[in-house]
Design a protein around this nucleic acid. Sequence first.
DNA 1: AGTTGACTTTGACGCAGCGTAATACTTTAT
DNA 2: ATAAAGTATTACGCTGCGTCAAAGTCAACT
Lengths: 252, 252
Amino acid sequence: MEYSSNQVSKMSGVSARTLRYYDEIGLLKPARIASSGYRIYGQAELDTLQQILFYKEMGFSLTDIRKLLSAPDFDREQAFMNHLAELSKKRERLDTLIETVTKSIAALRGEQTMSDKEKFRGFKQAMIDENEHQYGTEIREKYGEEAIERSNARIKGMTHERYAEGERLRQEAEDTLKAALEIGDPAGELAQKACDLHGKWLAVFQPEYNKAYHKSLGELYVADERFKVYYDKIAPGCAEFLRDAINIYCAG
Amino acid sequence: MEYSSNQVSKMSGVSARTLRYYDEIGLLKPARIASSGYRIYGQAELDTLQQILFYKEMGFSLTDIRKLLSAPDFDREQAFMNHLAELSKKRERLDTLIETVTKSIAALRGEQTMSDKEKFRGFKQAMIDENEHQYGTEIREKYGEEAIERSNARIKGMTHERYAEGERLRQEAEDTLKAALEIGDPAGELAQKACDLHGKWLAVFQPEYNKAYHKSLGELYVADERFKVYYDKIAPGCAEFLRDAINIYCAG
DNA sequence: AGTTGACTTTGACGCAGCGTAATACTTTAT
DNA sequence: ATAAAGTATTACGCTGCGTCAAAGTCAACT
């Protein structure tokens, strides 16, 4: 079935102007261009638009959305599962906001006291600080590491410099890790250097370095299949090796 | 208790740049400027910032937020009650989105069929069309007519022209209504003219004029204290008069 | 007191993601 | 055939900041 841009616009609520913009930036190309010059969309395009709107709902930039959708391993069913989880978290944030309102009313009426910090619980900006550890990690494994770091960088207002530094550290940590794995000594100088770099990478995104968290992250890399797969792509056995090296590093 | 902009920023998650911008546009002035030139915020400013963030959460522009907050009849407790209601509606929208995802998954697996229109249920843009009647009315009475019409205009992508036409019609309807009230005949030419204008104003925001809706709106103006207050500000007894005039108009 | 790093200001440029509008061509309905 | 609706391209502008440079202020340390 085919649709004109007006029909797609009415169906989705996205303006025709927006559809043209999406075509222009390569985010959503029409199925074909009629002899009149009119854009014609098909089933696949509607499905893509739906995905775009879900990612927009999660706060991704159009550039990031394009990357995610064009990744060779993009899987629609997996994406839906991710949307489901994220919508649930978003719903929780709304619950927190609702709680903030009810508490604010009670405070206004003198029925209870409320700290100034509490007044901002649930707002998007404040949520980043509260949930950075879990938020970052969970999204990262679901959506891919690069897109997440970009998303986090944008949300947190990190400078390009700082973000680039994080990228450099991560890349160097992984390269060092790979070299250390060839030697095979988690207590060795190279492995400990990799851990040091890894910790520095971690510190770019956290208020400050936390040894316990670093250690638990190493365990997570082994315990969670998806992380394990990610690291074993660097080299087989990498996840366990890094976990062991981190344990030694944090014990030192 | 006083706070520096850094402290407010950390507490609320709003950047210092944003705080400066809010000061610049008159949205959130600091309590005072220290001798150093630094902005110092107090309790009242924190409370105002909280309100700003709630309205932003509802999608209001900063200009509209400033108008709402500076209105002589702005009441914080009433505002909280409104935020509560709006957050609930927002939560319902999320539920609809979640439903859309689960249905999409089922459709993907071939377990059920899904129309193309259904794929977009719950997205912000699509929600406007589905709920315009109730959505517009409820927000209007809660937040003030002008702000709502501006908000709706923005959301719906109305042209400035069309919006201005709606404004002109509303103003003329109210002026005519006032003059008709002085005559005192709801069936009179002037009163019926006011109803005609009022109906035309209604039609600017609806897909098409609906007599039943127009009539129920007249009843609402009398039944709901806040509407009654609004119209009786034009002239005492105005709400009932308009309700009566509309009933006659719609019976004609 | 001097130094350094963190904090804060003002001024200014640029960006994402469109909305709006003009002009001209195409399609649809009467 | 005509008029209205639909659609394209081109181009400007807007909101709400993010980023950055330059300079002043504050706080902690030596």
